[in-house]
Amino acid sequence: MSRVHDMGGRFGDGAVIPDLPDAPVFEKDWHARTLAITLAAGALGQWNLDISRHARERLAPKDYSRLSYYEKWIAALADLLVEKGVVTREELRAGHAEGGSPLAERKLLAANVGAVLAKGGPVDRAGTAPKFKMSDNVRTIHPAANRFVAGGHTRLPSYASGQTGEVRAFHGCHIFPDAHAHGRGEDPRPIYAVAFPAQALWGPSADPRDEVILDLWEPYLEPAHG
């Protein structure tokens, strides 16, 4: 059921290579340019953060695994620009515009960058009363999958699906990505920090004292008894 980005717990990726203390923020100029274009294109308002994340996740698994981090951003941005009709596939192929765009009035100007970055995009909303309370035992749904759209965006990782954990915090109601990524509105839902014992997730090789905490929306959770 899962997609290639859902890699928590996976084996075979080798060692983590820490960077050097003086490593630059952007290793290559085009990395910086990719981040900036992605943010500037997002300011045109033709998609939201969840749509944008899903565009990266639905790259073909071969592409997702082979492309570097910022190459995934480029690929996803190109796909979204064409899907949303911001540019045509022919324009993308030619690398030149065939005409202007009605969205030009929304262009992010240099003078507004500071204010846009400082403003952010909070996702807390008014919503329903929480069904669970602190210290409740909850069980995550299985399989981890978008319940509206087959293969759709979801934020319940596979490794934490079908597991029992304990509610440690309630964050209020947040925009529900499973809906928001697929044109179903914000659909705000209660969201909780839920703790899972490491040994329940990974077996006896994990330290019995360790735990993993995830932020999970209420539709991912059911009451756990016993």
Partner: peptide, 20 residues
């Protein structure tokens, strides 16, 4: 992508510099 979006009037290269 930058050339195309700039030609279409959708991206301001100076804004990209500012973000970076």
């Amino acid at each position: 992508l930058e050339t195309l979006l700039t030609e279409k009037g959708l991206v301001d290269p100076a804004a990209l510099d500012e973000i970076i």
